[in-house]
Nucleic acid binder design. Structure first.
Lengths: 125, 125
DNA sequence: TATTTTATATGTTCGAAACATATATCAGTC
DNA sequence: GACTGATATATGTTTCGAACATATAAAATA
């Protein structure tokens, strides 16, 4: 049993759910990136506190590529370690639209629940 | 590989994250309940579509009880199958307050991300 | 009597984040 | 020239907790 980082209690950590995939698709919608660039941009989206996990990024990229939602090419134009440049595909853009819809539902449901919570907590104080 | 129920695509199902525990604590805040009652009330909170999973409910109740957040007593006053009546404890109420805080952060972050998503999607249409 | 509803409980699988480790190139510095 | 740290990519393993499946039994109802 670990500590819930937000609750500071003995209960489980609060894990996020499906944030890596939509985050990466969003960043690639703005412009093509390589993995390391995505890693440094991810924390600014507000889902994590510390630095992003390379494992999450590169594995998700491979998954997305296998699904045809992003495409990659080795970038050898620059000196230094070889970079793989990822681009979002048309299918990826459509997919991000679906994500936007389902995330919005999630957000609405969560908002309704929080409202109920607030009322309940306020009532019993 | 299964179908994402919302996306209708080949990608993974979108699983929820930590909704059972706060939901149950909330319902017990309103009034003491037994497990079966909670099961039928859960779908109304908007996190699931179909009926609630008994496994999720009873296991969470046991977990919460072990953590001292709820207390239970066998209810033999009524005829019929024996029911275990669950009550939220003072610690449970405090805990629900923490949940409210962290869920609100989640909601705010998600809202900000969705806004960015909308802009990106609108821009590239 | 047979089926459904009420009621509780455990066993197993699975998705995806979290955590850990490995490898190689290049830039700067001591 | 050796050492350190940033850049860059990749895989291995653990963990959490929802999702799915199954088991049991008493009572209500058809």
């Amino acid at each position: 049993m670990h500590k819930h980082p937000a609750h500071g209690c003995g209960c489980y950590k609060e894990r996020q759910s499906r944030w890596v995939e939509p985050s990466i698709l969003f960043l690639l919608m703005e412009k093509p990136c390589h993995g390391y660039e995505l890693m440094s941009a991810l924390p600014e989206l507000g889902f994590i506190n510390g630095p992003a996990d390379p494992g999450a990024v590169y594995r998700t990229l491979r998954h997305l590529e296998k699904a045809g939602l992003v495409a990659s090419a080795w970038d050898t134009s620059h000196p230094g370690a070889a970079k793989r440049l990822y681009t979002i595909t048309a299918a990826g853009k459509r997919h991000l639209g679906l994500w936007a819809e389902s995330l919005r539902r999630r957000w609405t449901n969560l908002g309704a629940f929080i409202k109920k919570l607030d009322q309940a907590v306020a009532q019993k104080t």
